[in-house]
């Protein structure tokens, strides 16, 4: 399926980026071009190839269960655009 305006609107919504109607056609064109270009990977036979998990040939390290962070509310809130009574605040969410 080719990328059209509706695709752009859909992925922009998933990514929570407002894309004005007027920009969607242009973006669709740009993304179409890029996607067509990356589709050259189809030329490569990858049957039986395990997708790369990481370039680091290690397993994930595990840390001990110790409390050595947190307890720094002022630091955590210092950069907040809006905070009140020790909470971050956002426009009301309706569940």
């Amino acid at each position: 399926m080719s990328i059209d305006k509706a695709t752009v609107a859909h992925i922009a919504a998933l990514a929570r980026i407002r894309v004005p109607e007027a920009d969607r056609e242009r973006l669709a064109g740009e993304l179409r071009k890029i996607v067509a270009w990356i589709e050259q990977l189809d030329e490569i036979d990858t049957t039986g190839v395990e997708p790369m998990a990481s370039v680091v040939e290690m397993t994930t390290p595990q840390r001990p269960d110790a409390v050595n962070d947190g307890d720094c509310r002022d630091k955590v809130l210092a950069n907040a655009p809006a905070a009140s009574h020790g909470f971050f605040t956002v426009p009301k969410v309706v569940e």
């Binding site: 990858t46 190839v49 997708p51 790369m52």
Partner: peptide, 8 residues
């Protein structure tokens, strides 16, 4: 697909 090519 990309992660497979990356492995290659």
């Amino acid at each position: 697909k990309a992660q497979r090519v990356r492995a290659l």
